[in-house]
Design a protein around this nucleic acid. Structure first.
Lengths: 241, 241
DNA sequence: GAACCGTTTTTTGCATGCTATTTGGAATGA
DNA sequence: TCATTCCAAATAGCATGCAAAAAACGGTTC
């Protein structure tokens, strides 16, 4: 329909090359989502911080358009809050809000547990065992951060073994949303040791494919982990949003 | 960094004025999300249909930029699927996928029921009673569509009364995602009459603030409603995604 | 010093147009 | 007839620039 003859002779500036000298892999928006998600869940962008589009788009060496798309995605994951005409900020969650999310995670684990026990494949079990071994290794080396990461992976792998895409998706999203706040609990050495032991029990329940036991163990694990984190955060967190 | 001197002397076209002669209320992206969500959940854009950016942006009289942002939001609600470089399409859910979502809704109702009974305010109860009365009126008038809409509102209002923002949010999202597939069940007259009766029971449980009873009733209600819809959809739906 | 108000500066919202990728189809060969 | 290759049209991805809203500033008055 439109004439394509009149081209301004101007190349796009060399913006596809990021600051580190490598062209980004994949689509800009996707890359931006992943980087921002990391920055938020890792705490590099702490709760309460403002995100100005230009600053971040410069930092990720892309234009505002894909960055804005990324922010919209993160908003619907509730990892950022967008205020009209005022921009994005990382939400500061209250203890009650994390509580709520923990309840949902427990409900999802209760829903998933029997499914996992009836539908988990031997490969999935083996995968979980491998992750567990690696996690224990990090525990014994006292490496908190990799321990925590693999810990999350294990819980995700268990939920994934339920075969319910819907449950997996929601679990992932909600657990990512509050991840930052749960981290505090692992700094307690007694709790840490106890958590590893609970993981052993969970693994046993998986091997025996005992759905009821698995459900009980998962919920107790989540509950007691959060209890410790909550105490740790008591000073830092506000009482109401 | 870049020179700002060279301006093409061109006004933005009068595109803020929509086809109906009214300027849109609120932000374009928000408007686009709401309109598209309606178009999808109502079936105006049926599962399987492709959405080309230009066609829809013309139809909603806005540019591709806010439309693309809207699509990203809808994607993370799983109301559309975006294939890289190929655009958006409305996903066709299999029976199993709707099943999964129904399980999640039931789990959320189970989680919410006791909270609702302990935290619901008298105003919230009154609000639900009002909605119920209106719903019954539509039932007696044989008006299926408004009945169905208010039905959804009642379930949302019950969940909202739990006071858990997290549960409300997830319930809303998942129930919207499968809404299109649940509609079929109400075409069965026997089921419809039965459903209204079940709502009476649910209302009683709310009045008595009996959490266990409420939980049981809600779950039975959801289960039997979906059972009928599933039979209706049996012919139309594929077995696997 | 604090509160008010007009002006400048910054930042978001959006339309536009170019580039890159995909696709549909014609032309070619087996 | 069918598969293959190549080209053109269509369409998504993204950078850019302008308009408008919000924030920051500066000066004035109380």
């Amino acid at each position: 329909m439109s004439a394509k003859a009149l081209h301004a002779i101007r190349r796009n500036s060399a913006s596809r090359i990021a600051a580190d000298g490598f062209a980004p892999r994949g689509l800009s928006t996707t890359v931006a989502v992943e980087k921002l998600r990391d920055m938020i869940t890792s705490g590099e962008l702490p709760p309460g911080s403002r995100i100005t589009e230009r600053a971040i788009s410069d930092r990720l060496s892309l234009s505002r358009t894909p960055l804005r798309e990324a922010l919209k995605i993160l908003e619907s994951e509730e990892l950022v809050v967008l205020e009209p005409h005022r921009g994005a900020l990382v939400p500061l969650l209250s203890e009650e809000e994390v509580d709520e999310a923990m309840s949902v995670l427990m409900a999802l684990e209760a829903l998933a547990a029997p499914l996992v026990c009836s539908r988990m494949t031997p490969e999935q079990l083996a995968e979980i065992e491998t992750l567990h071994a690696r996690m224990v290794a990090h525990f014994e080396a006292g490496e908190l951060l990799p321990y925590f990461t693999i810990n999350q992976d294990i819980h995700r792998a268990i939920i994934d073994a339920s075969g319910s895409h819907t449950v997996s998706r929601i679990y992932r999203r909600e657990s990512g949303r509050i991840q930052r706040y749960r981290f505090a609990g692992n700094r307690d050495m007694a709790r840490w040791r106890r958590a590893v032991y609970e993981h052993e029990l969970i693994l046993d329940a998986l091997r025996q494919r005992d759905g009821e036991l698995l459900k009980a163990l998962l919920q107790a694990h989540l509950r007691s982990g959060w209890k410790v984190s909550r105490e740790r955060l008591g000073e830092t967190l506000p009482q109401a949003p």
